[in-house]
């Protein structure tokens, strides 16, 4: 059982717990509907990054592995470069126009997770190393 940082943050802890599912649903909504409505991968990723950051604001835990998150982010970047190279520059998008929407959703998901991981790594790096 992880205790909050101090008793002053119990209100923040409760409100963050209440808001957690809404943050997840809203971030995924912005990402998954990015091709039809305003929003997209970058915006939804910024919303999803609040998950780990908000958790750190309440519980100052250090069980988040920056190294592993960075590995996942690099793997996502490789996929993020390979998929458009095959689909757009290989002109598959003209040959199979029925895959266009699936491509847009997949790319928005990739960008969203990558941006969320990137922002999380940036904030945690500050928190772990420059916390003077």
């Amino acid at each position: 059982m992880i205790e909050p940082v101090s008793k002053d943050t119990s209100i923040v802890a409760v409100i963050t717990g209440v808001l957690y599912p809404f943050i997840i649903v809203f971030g995924l909504y912005v990402i998954l509907n990015g091709h039809n409505t305003p929003g997209g991968g970058f915006q939804g990723g910024a919303i999803l990054a609040v998950l780990f950051i908000g958790r750190y604001l309440v519980f100052h835990t250090d069980d988040f592995s920056i190294h592993r998150a960075h590995l996942v982010e690099k793997a996502l970047l490789v996929v993020l470069i390979l998929v458009p190279v095959l689909f757009i520059f290989g002109s598959l998008s003209r040959r199979y126009p029925q895959w266009n929407e699936a491509y847009l959703i997949f790319m928005n998901l990739l960008i969203g997770f990558k941006v969320a991981l990137g922002l999380t790594i940036v904030v945690f790096r500050y928190a772990f190393f420059e916390d003077r």
């Binding site: 990015g34 039809n36 305003p38 126009p97 847009l104 928005n108 960008i111």
Partner: peptide
Amino acid sequence: TGAGNAVAAIYLNYRMYDTIFEA
């Protein structure tokens, strides 16, 4: 592009290089 949103159509199809280098 099959998108309902011109911004998504541009940044994921017409201007894909821009998105790659932004990442």
